[in-house]
């Protein structure tokens, strides 16, 4: 039974966020301790608190921690971007990639692999590709003066299809030894991950900005006109949403390639179980997305170790049954 008074609801929201934060912490500990070299909890504590140089310390600080933090940030960015995109387009099928941001980034990244450029150039080119897409879709959807979600969605979907064609072309003309790297990038892969310094800054700024828009977002669910009638300046809000979601996606894709499914499914799972209030939904999506991707990545690198799986495979393997289960159990309507 959902508590009926506003104050109970607020306490409930805090509790959910706290639980999700704990889950994130738990998966972080799990990620740092598990792998080809098992590290016990007490060893982990020592490694973190003392300044020693041992094999365990190197493994934790140089390999596992950057990768784990990247997973948290990327997962959080994707889930948050997915949630924003679903409100902007008012479409339950929207995900962070629906408007072609990942397609633009992929073309940039694959181009770098083909040219044999280093990982820095690859990230830079992926980000440039994402930004080109952002401006292209925005400009094209805008051209006639009217700017409806449907128009934006169609423009983005068709642009994404265009990128898809370019990607297929690049895959078919590239050499065999480059193909594995390309396919891993396209499926999403955290093995190149570095400490997400500037990316976590992007994430925190976007989270705070979108959280500040949470109540207007609730109104947007009931249509642009209804939001307008209740005093929301709809057009600036839509542009803001588009920029925030695109920036988050671009940043996530730059770090880890196009990890699928997470951005579509996490917001839905939370909506079905926690309700549609974005003041809870936005931070909850970020926490749950981060937690889920970190768990998936830990599995991806331990399941058939020393071989690694692309994490995108695991997110789909976990996400599909969880989503279907929640959908079956939920007594909330989806559309």
């Amino acid at each position: 039974m959902i508590p009926s008074t506003v104050s109970q609801q607020q306490q409930r929201n805090l509790l959910y966020l706290l639980l999700l934060a704990l889950a994130c912490l738990g998966s972080l500990v799990l990620a740092l301790t598990s792998g080809s070299i098992e590290i016990s909890l007490s060893d982990l504590w020592q490694v973190i608190t003392t300044d020693q140089t041992s094999l365990q310390s190197t493994v934790v600080h140089e390999l596992r921690l950057p990768r784990a933090l990247s997973a948290l940030i990327v997962g959080a960015q994707l889930a948050l971007a997915g949630c924003l995109m679903q409100v902007l387009l008012r479409n339950p099928l929207a995900d962070p990639y629906v408007l072609g941001v990942s397609g633009g980034a992929a073309v940039g990244a694959l181009f770098s692999i083909m040219m044999g450029l280093g990982s820095f150039a690859m990230s830079a080119n992926a980000f440039i590709g994402a930004m080109v897409n952002l401006l292209l879709v925005f400009g094209l959807a805008h051209s006639q003066g009217s700017w409806s979600p449907t128009r934006l969605l169609l423009t983005g979907v068709v642009t994404a299809a265009g990128w898809g064609a370019v990607i297929s072309f690049m895959l078919s003309i590239s050499q065999d030894h480059q193909l594995t790297g390309m396919v891993f990038w396209l499926m999403g892969d955290l093995s190149r991950a570095q400490l997400p310094g500037q990316h976590s800054l992007v994430f925190i700024i976007c989270l705070l900005l979108s959280w500040a828009l949470a109540r207007p977002l609730n109104l947007m669910l009931r249509g642009e006109m209804q939001a307008k009638a209740l005093g929301v300046s709809v057009y600036p809000l839509q542009i803001g949403l588009y920029l925030l979601a695109s920036l988050l996606t671009a940043s996530a894709v730059t770090q880890a390639g196009s990890i699928g499914f997470l951005g579509l499914v996490v917001p839905h799972i939370l909506r079905l179980s926690l309700g549609t209030d974005h003041r809870l939904l936005l931070p909850a999506s970020a926490l749950a997305g981060g937690c889920l991707l970190l768990l998936a990545d830990t599995l991806a690198r331990t399941l058939i170790a020393p071989q690694q799986l692309p994490v995108g495979v695991i997110t789909a393997f976990i996400g599909v049954p969880v989503f279907l289960w929640v959908l079956q159990k939920s007594n909330r309507g989806l559309v």
Partner: peptide
């Protein structure tokens, strides 16, 4: 919106909220 209220003819609901949440949106 503090001075002027509007009842729209049609309404869309992408992700339905509860009745109480919807009524509370009037406080926005």
């Amino acid at each position: 919106a503090q001075k002027l209220g509007f009842l729209l003819q049609d309404e869309k609901n992408a992700f339905p909220a509860t009745v109480l949440e919807t009524a509370l949106q009037g406080r926005h």
